[in-house]
């Protein structure tokens, strides 16, 4: 049991560091000042990955019934996809 928890702690710590790094990356891209479709898609993708990490590990949905995984991840994918669609629609 305690062994499980230690490994879970380790996994969460690694994810936390990765999430911080991804945030700094997003910030740096923003500071770089570039825009455009590719950048928007990249940043949305990063946001979706970060969201998935929080959902599956922090919210512990990785060990939840499939239905709940589908609902929460489905929300994430749908929201990001619709945002992407709106950006694509708004391209000059």
């Amino acid at each position: 049991m305690n062994h499980d928890i230690r490994s879970a702690n380790r996994r969460s710590t690694v994810l936390w560091v990765l999430l911080l790094a991804a945030t700094v990356f997003t910030w740096a891209v923003g500071e770089g000042g570039s825009g455009g479709a590719a950048i928007a898609a990249l940043l949305l993708g990063v946001a979706a990955l970060k969201g998935a990490a929080v959902i599956l590990d922090f919210m512990a949905l990785a060990r939840a019934p499939l239905l709940w995984q589908l609902i929460t991840l489905g929300w994430l994918v749908l929201v990001c996809a619709l945002i992407g669609l709106a950006y694509w629609k708004g391209m000059p």
Binding site: T26, I39, A40, A47, V54, I55, M59
Partner: peptide, 26 residues
């Protein structure tokens, strides 16, 4: 504690989209 934690993570989760959406992506 799991219920409360889940709520807090939700607050975090939505910000993870809000930040790039409103502050960064142009």
């Amino acid at each position: 504690i799991e219920s409360g934690a889940a709520y807090w993570h939700m607050v975090d989760l939505v910000w993870l989209i809000l930040f790039p959406l409103v502050y960064v992506i142009r």
